[in-house]
């Protein structure tokens, strides 16, 4: 069960526009399809979960 607490960590953000996120490892994608793919790969590699902020930013979070 993903518990919400201070240990939840943003591992990376995948964006198409670098102006949308800062302060975390940032991955730039060329299109929406590539963005989803990168996010999915990162989630599998880092044992994290992809969350959609619905403003074009995908973040990978470990719960």
């Amino acid at each position: 069960m993903p518990q919400v607490n201070i240990n939840n960590l943003i591992l990376a953000a995948v964006v198409r526009d670098t102006g949308l996120a800062a302060g975390v490892p940032l991955f730039l994608a060329r299109n929406a399809e590539e963005q989803q793919k990168i996010a999915a790969y990162l989630a599998r590699i880092l044992n994290g979960m992809v969350h959609d902020l619905e403003n074009g930013v995908l973040i990978v979070v470990r719960h």
Binding site: A43, M49, V50, H51, D52
Partner: peptide
Amino acid sequence: LVNVGAPEM
């Protein structure tokens, strides 16, 4: 319940 980012998920 939870935010799921990946469309296929």
